[in-house]
Simulated scan of single mutants.
Amino acid sequence: MAERFFLYDDTEETKTRFVSFMGENTRFDLAITQTDRHYGKSLVLDMQGSRFAIIGQDDLDEEGYLEHAFQLSEEDAAELRSFLFELL
């Protein structure tokens, strides 16, 4: 067997918040992990939709980012954006 070539193999302390809330049309079940790894951005995992994105304040301002990353309607993305603005 050939020697494994690692690009990186790091261990880091993280802070993870698990939160579930009901929007107007959809339920959000999220795991939000804060780490120093991604330049101060958070790793947001949608546990029901099996999707994730690395999100910072600048990403919340980018039109269509949440819609694309989480495959959401504009209305559902607006609810998620509002929640994440309070958190991030």
Rank of each mutant, 00 (worst) to 15 (best):
E3M: 04
E3D: 03
E3T: 07
R4S: 04
F5V: 13
F5G: 11
Y8M: 12
D9K: 07
T11G: 02
T11P: 01
E12L: 02
T14C: 05
T16P: 05
T16M: 06
R17I: 12
G23L: 03
E24V: 10
E24K: 12
E24N: 14
N25S: 03
N25M: 03
R27T: 04
R27E: 10
F28S: 08
F28L: 07
I32A: 02
I32S: 03
T33P: 06
Q34E: 14
D36S: 14
D36Q: 11
R37K: 06
R37D: 00
H38T: 10
H38N: 14
H38Y: 15
K41W: 01
K41G: 00
L43R: 12
V44I: 11
D46F: 15
D46G: 15
M47C: 13
M47Q: 10
G49P: 13
R51I: 09
R51G: 13
F52N: 11
F52L: 12
A53I: 04
I55Y: 05
I55N: 05
I55C: 06
G56S: 05
D59W: 14
L60S: 00
D61H: 15
E67G: 06
E67Q: 07
H68F: 14
Q71K: 14
S73V: 09
S73T: 14
E74R: 01
D76P: 06
A77P: 00
A78C: 14
E79G: 05
E79Y: 03
L80N: 05
L80F: 07
L80E: 06
L80V: 03
L80Q: 04
S82L: 13
S82Q: 11
L84H: 09
F85A: 09
F85M: 09
F85Q: 14
E86Y: 04
L87W: 07
L88W: 06
